[in-house]
């Protein structure tokens, strides 16, 4: 499982207009790495077949 390295994250943050120092880049990298297993599980999991694709379903709890 690989996640972007710190330089890639720093470039992305700068491109998006955020000014973050080296310490924060390291913190971002650690956070991305820590969340990767859960994020990867979600990416590989099919959606429930009841309209869950639209995030509005999460905004309002509609019973199928």
């Amino acid at each position: 499982m690989s996640v972007p390295d710190r330089d890639e994250l720093a470039v992305l943050a700068a491109r998006l207009g955020y000014r973050v120092d080296d310490e924060i880049v390291d913190v971002m990298r650690a956070a991305v790495e820590a969340s990767e297993p859960a994020a990867a599980r979600l990416r590989s999991r099919p959606l429930p077949p009841d309209g869950a694709a639209d995030p509005a379903h999460g905004d309002r709890w509609v019973r199928p």
Binding site: Y18, V27, V32, L42, L47, P55, G58
Partner: peptide
């Protein structure tokens, strides 16, 4: 330190996370 993680969360992961709410609701 906390919110900077959100700068680099890909849009597809953020949207998948929103869909995850529905799975938890179910």
């Amino acid at each position: 330190r906390r919110i900077s993680q959100g700068i680099v969360t890909p849009a597809v992961d953020y949207l998948r996370a929103l869909q995850f709410r529905v799975e938890l609701q179910r």
